[in-house]
Nucleic acid binder design. Sequence first.
DNA 1: GTTTAATTTAAACGAGTGTTTTAAATCAAT
DNA 2: ATTGATTTAAAACACTCGTTTAAATTAAAC
Lengths: 218, 218
Amino acid sequence: MASRSDTKTRILDAAEKLFAERGFSETSLRLITSKAEVNLASVNYHFGSKKELIRAVLARYLDVFMPAAAKEISRLHTAPNQASLDEIFSALVAPLLELNKLRAEGTTIFLQLLGRGYIESQGHLRWFITTHYGEPLAKFVKAVQASVPHIPSAEMFWRLHFTLGTVVFTMASADALTEIAAADFGEHNDIEAVIRKVIPYMAAGVAVPVINNEKGLL
Amino acid sequence: MASRSDTKTRILDAAEKLFAERGFSETSLRLITSKAEVNLASVNYHFGSKKELIRAVLARYLDVFMPAAAKEISRLHTAPNQASLDEIFSALVAPLLELNKLRAEGTTIFLQLLGRGYIESQGHLRWFITTHYGEPLAKFVKAVQASVPHIPSAEMFWRLHFTLGTVVFTMASADALTEIAAADFGEHNDIEAVIRKVIPYMAAGVAVPVINNEKGLL
DNA sequence: GTTTAATTTAAACGAGTGTTTTAAATCAAT
DNA sequence: ATTGATTTAAAACACTCGTTTAAATTAAAC
């Protein structure tokens, strides 16, 4: 059943790296298969199509991350007192860093894939994630809303997408940014340091009071 | 010299809409020229290549927006008292909305183009903008830093990129998000409403105090 | 009005894409 | 060892892409 060092895995490993770096549509199957040192046709044999390969790459991470994240959120709920926004966001850090044990650079790759997916696939990935992982997602949103009850849910919808944009864009260009930061400020950040920097930023933005500014200066 | 209703303009008008909607690499010259009702070869005749067409599309907006934004920032400097972060970000709103007078949906298109460009062109657009519009950009950064002097410049570097990510990702998917918001919450937001929502979010994140969390719980 | 230059047109080029096909090789089970 | 299903291999297919070419058309200049 299994062969060599598993062609399927070799394809997934090569594909996720290239997808994260250059995006999905900019990555050809020929480039993937040559990096993976497998035959071109094996992609269609094992996965059916490029689109299904993309889904498989994402699912391999989401299937690990989502349950772990849900477990962390649940743990917050059973805590004695109300969790702060910082605590809720920070609860996702451990599941994210766990991905580094799954594969080298796993955390970065996962976040970059997520960003690429959201941007490239015109809402298609958004549908895929919400339908396949709706439960842990809803749990997270609920925890956030309970933590800042003064924010209406419509406003929260927007702020959570702002937050998604912040993390996704940051991670998509994290490599370039850490390089610049090292050159300009002598800072040497790894992915965890960047995550720890972004959490207070997002928490402050999500929690900021809503001001009724409808009659503001035009 | 000029012909018909200006082929060059017809191409730019059709291209910017398609680029904003579907991204640069997902938009073929054949699609652009068919929407513009011009011949395929006229793109290469007038612009030389697709890459130069992309630059021309962006420059047509940047040449209007950047000077206007710089002027607004300068006006803040001469104000009697120190400008708040909200005021600094809000100073960009008027120049942004001015683009709607330039062309229909100009504001949305410009912001979406900016987002697409930053994401798709691996730092290439970042270089283009900083070298061609470095002066107004530096002026903006300076104003932000003066407004929140308690943030070290290294931290500010990261936060401004978080901010860029927030706005860029939000605008790249603004159409989809406004649709969802309308369906789920009955909210009908235009681009200005979204901009007014995102400003407090970003301002709060940029200004949040830095806590020395190096010995935080792992 | 003829000549000259600028522009538009239709067609083709060459390279790259995802996918399919056909045959050979590999493997597990009889 | 032979069978039968998997897996790999190489090639071709059908298509799209950006770009180029060369002729036809339009506009400008004299």
